[in-house]
Design a protein around this nucleic acid. Sequence first.
DNA 1: CTTGACCCTGTAGTTGCTACAGGGTGTAGA
DNA 2: TCTACACCCTGTAGCAACTACAGGGTCAAG
Lengths: 137, 137
Amino acid sequence: MKIGELANATATNVETVRYYEKISLLAPPARSASNYRSYSNEHLARLSFIRRARDLGFALEAVRELLTLSDDTGQSCEAVDQIASAHLAEVERKIDDLSALRSELTRVIGSCRHGTIADCKIIESLAPTPQLKGAAQ
Amino acid sequence: MKIGELANATATNVETVRYYEKISLLAPPARSASNYRSYSNEHLARLSFIRRARDLGFALEAVRELLTLSDDTGQSCEAVDQIASAHLAEVERKIDDLSALRSELTRVIGSCRHGTIADCKIIESLAPTPQLKGAAQ
DNA sequence: CTTGACCCTGTAGTTGCTACAGGGTGTAGA
DNA sequence: TCTACACCCTGTAGCAACTACAGGGTCAAG
């Protein structure tokens, strides 16, 4: 199949497919007489795997490792579990960070009395020790 | 004060300070005889504002707008409120996305029976229609 | 007078794409 | 047959927000 069909089948951008080939995440396919890329079902399966992993938020380097591991069917899946767990931990860390951010933003926005900038509690909470402004250097 | 002192006072990287100057977020300071940057307290206040806004997750372009607005003390703070609220909405969207991701990852990892890759539920949940593998192209 | 900490400019790297520019190919309709 | 159009090719530059050099200069202490 041609690159456009593959891209379509996996909801991927054509440029992204070529990018994956460039960084050796996807093997270079055969070429037609007119130099068009010609993909096999193996390529389709591989790209689908990549897409699914990306949808789960895995970094490209993690996807690369997962792909390698998935080929080594006899090995224990400990390494896979480890990559996924590390990723989950990272996701949880981000959620915690963003939740703290949300609280703070909600608080700051909630204090806004919708007056002028001079009285704006949002600006105030950003401006540190405003009395310094214009002071000697 | 010199760039190192300013950086220290605001928990910022020296390179980041120069970067902010380059993108015109921070005004170019005076220079010493030996061409060292020499910052005023105004610069300190400005950079502290930037840092605080960045800590709250505002994009640099949003910070730029907030800085401009903060100088216009007579104006209504509606625009400020709007920027902050839009940012909060974005943060909430990200939290939702990550929460969904967490659920899915937890489910996938939880199904792992710690056997071989061939039986690995994590790999399986990434691999789409695995029976296609190696099929004709 | 040398060592070390600091400062300077400018450029390239990071992640994961996306968007051209400037070409070639293939097919369907007038 | 011509031509329009959708698709394909390579290569490079751009995005956010820094970070990390390379290859220099400055300054104070010992």
